[in-house]
Design a protein around this nucleic acid. Structure first.
Lengths: 210, 210, 210, 210
DNA sequence: AATGAATGAGCATTCATTCAT
DNA sequence: AATGAATGAATGCTCATTCAT
């Protein structure tokens, strides 16, 4: 019925509302520093209400991760599927995709990277942590595919595509965290993009067959 | 004189003792999970005693960072100063240096990387955050120098050496964190070194002239 | 008319439904451990609906008490009214009546006994606590009457019948709780009935004239 | 050393202080109604301090139980060991002992009885719950011994002494709870003792041979 | 120098209850 | 009549930190 649908839609909107608030708060205070009350306030709900939509703080945080990962996946898969681009261009398109994910929500990307740590999030439901695991596989897979294609075309050196994907991802993650650390030390301006471009150029050259 | 020195030496020893304990505890429980009492127990001191040697938990943690950073610096500077190696070899020596830092104390490297965030760094005393800033500059500088030398010798493409240094460092950091995350998800085995080698090989090829 | 009656009947049925659910839930989790949501789920209603039939959790619980007390009263009065039995037999019939009340719903008898405490009773609405008071009077009265009759017949010693009634009731209550406690400690088997029989035999002998 | 001893003594005093406060608060609000903060206030400590002396609320409460049970045991064993009394007198001495335990702290006896329920106290350490179990055995054993002695002397009927002990204990517990319930309903005065005396007289007569 | 003792300030989470629909 | 949604108000418990001794 239309009424059922509307209810469900409203429910999703409120969930979204809470996630948006959480994003802001986690971004400004970090996971440990943010309290459920902070988030509730920001979302203009009572703390108890948060628990109607998320089982606990860990799951709320993880849902943010998931959202970011899904965004990442769709962008990276987009690049993977642009089969018409020459390999070099695709590496640059990958750079762009990663950077866009970062731009979407810089602080939260940092948080996700920092907290996606072994066992740090203790009370995740199996489903959620399964989904996160799955997403992680998926974007690594997409990057690997993209690279594999270049190998197939004879453009790239033939090395383990998943390792390669992890390297690309690590550069991204490492640079993002490095940027955050530097700003913690220096209040400098954001130099992520040029460095990321440079990095992927080097990588690109590095795997190009002669 | 002698007596003063001895006292100071003893003081340093106890400091060391505490740092060793802290390293263990932070490594196994993370920063947030570790309590000052846990650390005190491990160090066989009372919690109050810790505060005679470290202003607070953050600074104790940061001191650990510092130790790791100093280790890192000395190793990287060692590589920089081996002027006789050909550029390619030096990049591999750099890889080795980074990996040794990791091996020295994997869990703590992870912790350092995860927690050196904007928010946390700002809460440190000016001296300590100054020292950390200085160390960060120093190892980045050392890597940059090492690379610069290659440029000077005409072996490497001429790009911003500091950016290059950051890229190398980010790969290291990113791979280390990635490894840790993967282990949290999958309990897989440690594949850091081969991936790190591959990464630096690619990077090496990528910056080689012609 | 007929329609009104039907409505009322349906209303009573739903009330009953809720009470049945509550009985189960209180029995398995205790008063403090049971939540209104638990009960609602068991009753297949929404929590809000419970409040259409009971003012609050306390009153819902107390209604259960009342039901048990009414069962108790009718059984005890049944014994009292069996005027043809010789006094000894009537004491044994009383034992049987008490034990049947227990069998009817052991866990709830325990709950009633444990929670009918000063503090809780005072928080009930005057009507409900009045009803409970009345019931308590009634079954004590019935036991007292039963005993009084024995005195009148010259079979029993002449002591305060209400005190006697309270003693009998206390033995029952005490043994039931003791049984429950023991099971909490030892997981032993249910020895209530033989002990209850023994107790009433002793009591019986104790009040028999010579 | 004297200094060690003094410290230990002080520690015990503070523990005692907390237990006294807890006793008051539990007595007036019941277990569920009392908060750790209430107790802390009454004890003139901070809530956190309570946790230096008791692992959690359950254990604090159970420690009170233990104290009461130990008092009970020592009194009942006292009666058991007065071998010179004739059986009837010893039953009355038992009555006195039980009543004294009650007088020592009426409200808490009620609480102990109400909450010594299967599984109600969830987070007890095995030691503590073991001690409680042991105490329960001990006082039942003592009453049983006392009765057994009467059997041996040929004064009492020969029935299962432990069952007998449980009956006596149940009468006591039942009357105490009944008293509390009545006061919840009526604010009447305390009639426990005469009823308890009567009950034990009846019991006494009931088990006397001929 | 070392610490036993104490605590202030928090914080995630729960749940009985209400009310607009 | 029934309920989905929301929440106010608690509360047990933790921990970094201090300080008298």
């Amino acid at each position: 019925m239309g009424i059922e649908e509307r209810k469900e839609r409203e429910r999703q909107m409120r969930r979204q509302q809470i996630m948006d608030a959480a994003k802001k708060v986690f971004a400004s205070k970090g996971f440990g520093g943010a309290t459920m009350e902070n988030i509730a306030e920001e979302a203009e709900f009572s703390p108890a209400t948060l628990y109607l939509y998320f089982k606990n703080k860990d799951e709320l945080f993880a849902s943010l991760n998931l959202r970011m990962l899904q965004d990442l996946i769709s962008r990276v898969e987009g690049v993977r599927d642009q089969k018409d681009l020459v390999p070099e261009k695709r590496i640059m398109a990958l750079e762009k995709a990663l950077y866009e994910v970062y731009l979407e929500d810089p602080l939260n990307v940092v948080n996700v990277l920092r907290f996606q740590s072994r066992g740090r999030l203790k009370s995740l439901s199996p489903e959620l942590s399964g989904q996160i695991r799955e997403c992680t596989r998926q974007y690594i897979r997409a990057i690997a595919d993209l690279f594999q294609e270049g190998v197939r075309q004879g453009a790239f050196l033939d090395c383990h595509p998943v390792a390669f994907a992890e390297i690309v991802w690590s550069i991204f993650a490492g640079l993002v965290l490095n940027e955050d650390t530097k700003r913690g030390l220096d209040e400098g301006k954001d130099l992520l993009e040029p460095t990321l471009i440079l990095a992927l150029e080097i990588i690109g050259r590095g795997i190009m067959k002669n």
